[in-house]
């Protein structure tokens, strides 16, 4: 826990309304940004940019709305480990599927009417 306990009973960090409002404002601006970049032609960078913006938004929610910035490091670690394993899961399965997809596509071409 951090030492910034100015308010409340001291059991946990109390987030100021100002910080919450600034974070909400940032999230809305980023939503607008993702909307604008999503409708523009970005020559194949669309997905990367959209995921980058989504990750920044998710980080803001985690750090400030979910109090991870002020929380015990253990909770953030638990969450990051989950995200890490999703990445491992994703990378292996997508990589594997790209290896044999052409057999599958051929099968669909031949058998789907």
């Amino acid at each position: 826990m951090s030492g910034e306990h100015h308010e409340g009973s001291g059991v946990s960090h109390v987030q100021s309304v100002k910080v919450l409002a600034i974070v909400l404002g940032a999230l809305l601006v980023l939503t607008w940004l993702t909307y604008v970049t999503g409708s523009a032609n970005l020559h194949g960078w669309d997905l990367s940019i959209a995921m980058l913006i989504a990750t920044v938004k998710a980080s803001l929610v985690c750090l400030f709305f979910m109090h991870l910035k002020y929380d015990r490091p253990l909770h953030g670690t638990v969450f990051l480990v989950a995200v890490l394993f999703v990445g491992v899961f994703l990378a292996y399965v997508v990589g594997d599927s790209l290896e044999y997809q052409h057999y599958f596509d051929q099968h669909i071409e031949d058998h789907v009417k």
């Binding site: 946990s12 929380d71 015990r72 253990l74 909770h75 638990v78 969450f79 480990v81 989950a82 995200v83 394993f85 999703v86 899961f89 994703l90 399965v93 997508v94 599927s97």
Partner: peptide, 25 residues
């Protein structure tokens, strides 16, 4: 309680991960 909640959130992330992987494939 909070640690328990974060462990639950971890399982939620993994729960959705299956469908996100399906999407990605």
């Amino acid at each position: 309680g909070k640690f328990g909640m974060w462990m639950f959130l971890l399982t939620e992330v993994m729960f959705f991960a299956g469908l996100f992987v399906l999407y990605a494939v």
